[in-house]
Design a protein around this nucleic acid. Structure first.
Lengths: 231, 231
DNA sequence: CGCGGCTTTGATGTTCATCAAGTAAAGTGG
DNA sequence: CCACTTTACTTGATGAACATCAAAGCCGCG
């Protein structure tokens, strides 16, 4: 995790999300003083579960995963965050320590804002508070929706779900480099590594996708989507 | 769903949660003007998925379930709310229509506050905004935690989890009347009705619980807890 | 009394994790 | 740069976990 020295001025930050539009010049300057930008390598861990909560993480470029690690060595991936997303959960407001861990899945650039700063702004700027609520709300709802959707699907459906997710939500293209190992793929959806591979091969045999190593091409979008909904 | 005429004055409401402590007299009066109290029968549906979002629901007494109903006739119970809980999710801030349905599991008394009113208060009172964030955050985190805990357990563990939940979180007693049918029990944790019954019988044979119809007694608390964690 | 819903038990088949074993790819040190 | 180790990927075989089907008992209700 490497600090970036000449960090962007928040006032002119091209990534300034809708969240910060509600802030005045003085408030934006305050954010600027209490933030720090960092660069993390692919695979590098950013937050360890159990650490004290100090910062809000905002993803500028790259891709990160939020996951829970239990003693039993079983990781479960909770969500994959895209650029412009806030990473992490509402936990930030109700807890003193991170409940989950965060790692970079691709090389990523993050903006870290001190929690105290965010809290102050929420307390003093109403529209900002509403924006934060909306933003967090959307993110959490998404995670929950996925979680409950997946629960009603079996293997094939879950795997199709993930393929769709990467094609439509992350890469916005039917061809992409899968940023996860087969193991991580399985951890997103509660399927064993071996079966992830088996089903992917099956999809290939059936002409739904082309796949070689990490590079995936969805050939029959309609069919994959259908499986992700029904199967 | 029956309106209660002489509704409680919020200012002296014994149920006034921590959430509202941040409000001044004028603001509390405003809540009072924009709220309504209702009584619902056990089994009665309170919110239908797809309806426009108009109110915040606050549970005074009773027990309600939040659940998703899909076309395929498969309900999934997302959470059971206890008195003093806000019901529903953050969706309220990010959406215009309810994503999930709400039904009373026991006869319940609810307080319905107009969303507009809450939004205004969040915008004008910073400490209140923080309280809302904390509150929602705790609730959502809980749901998510349960969801991911359950995912790593198999049948026996999940069923023990629910038994614990009712004994410790809801009724605070090792003996209680189960407010759910066997089917609903299964819908909380993604287990078929038949297997819920089978495992409950198994637990009885093993001397972990006493059970007759809806009335349940946990005899060996430690063992049940152990199964809910490991199994 | 008889009908429909909830509960219970047994039998059956499917889905899926796990084990085992082998191949490919990717670091590592000499 | 090549042997060496390790890690990721892949395929097949096996058994466990679980849903589903079928049938019967139970209970409240018109």
């Amino acid at each position: 995790m490497q600090k970036i020295q000449d960090s962007t001025n928040c006032a002119v930050c091209p990534l300034k999300s809708s969240l910060f539009k509600a802030l005045g010049a003085k408030e934006t300057a305050c954010v600027h003083r209490h933030k720090e930008e960092v660069l993390v390598q692919s695979g590098e861990q950013i937050v360890h579960r159990g650490q004290e909560i100090t910062h809000f993480f905002y993803l500028q470029t790259g891709l990160v995963k939020l996951y829970s690690e239990s003693e039993s060595h079983r990781e479960q991936i909770i969500s994959i965050s895209r650029p412009l997303d806030f990473i992490g959960l509402l936990t930030i407001f109700s807890d003193t320590h991170y409940q989950y861990s965060i790692s970079a899945v691709l090389e990523s650039r993050l903006c870290m804002i001190e929690v105290g700063c965010i809290e102050t702004l929420v307390a003093q700027n109403g529209s900002f508070a509403i924006e934060v609520l909306k933003n967090m709300s959307i993110m959490t709802d998404h995670i929950l929706k996925d979680s409950y959707n997946l629960r009603s699907l079996q293997m094939r459906g879950r795997i199709a779900y993930v393929l769709n997710f990467f094609a439509e939500d992350i890469f916005k293209s039917s061809g992409f480099e899968l940023p996860l190992s087969r193991k991580e793929f399985g951890q997103m959806i509660g399927v064993s590594t071996e079966n992830v591979i088996r089903i992917l091969s099956e999809f290939r045999r059936d002409g739904l996708i082309r796949i070689s190593g990490k590079s995936i091409d969805i050939l029959n979008h309609a069919a994959v989507r259908e499986i992700a909904i029904r199967g």
